[in-house]
């Protein structure tokens, strides 16, 4: 039986991982296989992980404000490696204007502060199935 596999990654140097860990717990409890990368992952680390783990969805938690740089590089590398079909979702503190820009660039979903775990689970399931 096919299980949904999702990567939960903390790109950059920011160490605030409460959100990432809670999301990982919730998705595991929802029956998904969560590949947790830990802190300080570069975009190339994450793309490498996504490729090797054949993840259905890539989830990033970014609170440092470096989301633009990280997402640009990530999407570029995903393209290079032939995994541009995998949906990428971002959670964290993302200013409103940036949300639209990120979505235009190809980020499938942005989860701002206050997103409920249920909404998040639901949306990730949709994305994994659509893929």
């Amino acid at each position: 039986m096919k299980k949904t596999r999702i990567i939960v990654a903390k790109p950059g140097l920011d160490g605030h991982d409460r959100g990432a860990k809670i999301v990982a717990m919730a998705l595991r409890d929802a029956g998904m296989e969560v590949i947790y990368t830990g802190l300080r992952q570069s975009p190339s680390d994450i793309v490498n992980t996504a490729l090797q783990e054949d993840a259905d969805v890539i989830g990033l938690s970014i609170l440092s404000g470096a989301h633009m740089r990280i997402c640009d590089r990530l999407l570029e590398l995903m393209n290079e490696k032939g995994i541009a079909d995998k949906p990428v979702v971002v959670g964290g503190i993302i200013p409103h204007d940036d949300v639209e820009i990120l979505k235009k660039k190809g980020i499938a979903e942005v989860f701002g502060p206050g997103t409920s775990l249920k909404q998040l689970e639901q949306r990730i399931k949709e994305l994994a199935e659509k893929k």
């Binding site: 950059g12 140097l13 570069s42 470096a66």
Partner: peptide, 11 residues
């Protein structure tokens, strides 16, 4: 350092 990419002077 490459790990500093995008983080210099940020916080």
């Amino acid at each position: 350092h490459e790990m500093s990419d995008g983080e210099v002077g940020r916080v």
